[in-house]
Amino acid sequence: MLHIFCPHCGELRSEEEFHASGQAHIPRPLDPAACTDAEWGDYMFFRDNPRGLHHELWIHAAGCRQYFNATRDTMTYEILETYLIGTKPQFVNQVPAIRKGDQA
């Protein structure tokens, strides 16, 4: 069971208090109407799903009910950092994630 540092509460708490909410840093397109179906589908469904560092969104659901981000290694499950929404992670993957446009 993971041990997660809630940056809002300033405490390490057990995973049972939290809820994982998927990959972080996926902003909602500012003008959805301008998106093609493919772009909208990418926004909703397509994820990096990396082996290794993953920036992900968590909510301290049974605590302060605040969302925050975490950088976690999906192989070892080690959490390298948690950080506030709107801030950038300190730990990033060497290889950039694939975004729309890189697709072969």
Binding site: S21, P27, L57, I59, A61, Y67, I85, G86
Partner: peptide, 13 residues
């Protein structure tokens, strides 16, 4: 409730 919170906190703070 969680739906409202996620949009308020992450998309439209």
């Amino acid at each position: 409730l969680q739906w409202l919170e996620i949009y308020q906190q992450t998309e439209w703070p």
